[in-house]
């Protein structure tokens, strides 16, 4: 037997141990108890089946649409939106809650979707930038951002707009100074801040329902 072959065998062994160890500690413990041994054995070899065991069901409403989903516990809400649901309007700028590009509304409150797990959203209502406009008719904040040129590259813009809408709803848009403070969780590297303040002020003063 060549050395190569024996090395490969030991690798295989290690692989199976890893896989078993993984399944043992995985979320699927409950499911495992009910799973026929034949499937379990297959799971050790078949990645597609193994993947099922790693996922957890979760249901939530996204932009008005009820979704029954199955996600890995470690999947963040941001990655769920972007990678699995193709709602790519919400952006990843830092993945650590330090920039605001991923801002969405959960039950009406603005949050950083990069720092919350998808599995934690059971029964929640999520609104992303894609769900803000009323059909073809832009939300007043979207219109104001265009009018006041509240962006340049546009990458932080979905987060800025979601944050700006919430800022008014919270009652934190009563002066330019207050807007600047309460919008500080949304970084814009292009530096469109002055124009964003103008946009938020106009929507606030316009008195439209946001």
């Amino acid at each position: 037997m060549s050395q190569d072959h024996s090395e490969k065998q030991s690798e295989q062994k290690e692989f199976h141990e890893t896989r078993r160890g993984f399944l043992k500690q995985s979320t699927a413990m409950m499911a495992l108890a009910l799973t026929p041994p034949i499937v379990l054995k297959a799971a050790e070899k078949d990645e597609a089946i193994a993947a099922l065991f790693e996922k957890v069901p979760v249901s939530m409403e996204i932009n008005g649409k009820k979704q029954q989903l199955s996600v890995e516990p470690r999947t963040t809400l941001l990655d769920l939106l972007r990678e699995q649901l193709a709602l790519t309007g919400t952006k990843k700028g830092c993945d650590h809650g330090q920039c605001g590009a991923c801002t969405v509304h959960i039950n009406g409150m603005r949050v950083n979707s990069c720092l919350t797990l998808a599995v934690m959203q059971e029964g929640k209502k999520i609104t992303t930038i894609e769900g803000l406009a009323n059909g073809e008719e832009l939300h007043p904040m979207q219109q104001a951002f265009i009018k006041h040129d509240g962006f340049q590259c546009g990458y932080c813009t979905p987060g800025q707009i979601m944050s700006a809408v919430a800022c008014i709803r919270e009652g934190h848009a009563n002066s330019p100074e207050e807007i600047r403070e309460f919008m500080s969780g949304n970084i814009c590297r292009c530096g469109a801040y002055d124009n964003i303040v103008s946009a938020v002020l106009e929507v606030k003063q316009g008195g439209q329902k946001v």
Binding site: T88, G89, K92, I129, E130, L138, Q142, I146, Y155, I161
Partner: peptide, 26 residues
């Protein structure tokens, strides 16, 4: 007004990472 303003305020502007395609690996 920016000609691409609407795309940018609706999340419709597709930056490189926003592209999905069949069999895409990470």
């Amino acid at each position: 007004d920016r000609v691409d303003g609407r795309l940018k305020v609706t999340g419709g502007a597709k930056y490189f990472a926003d592209n999905h395609m069949e069999d895409l690996q990470h």
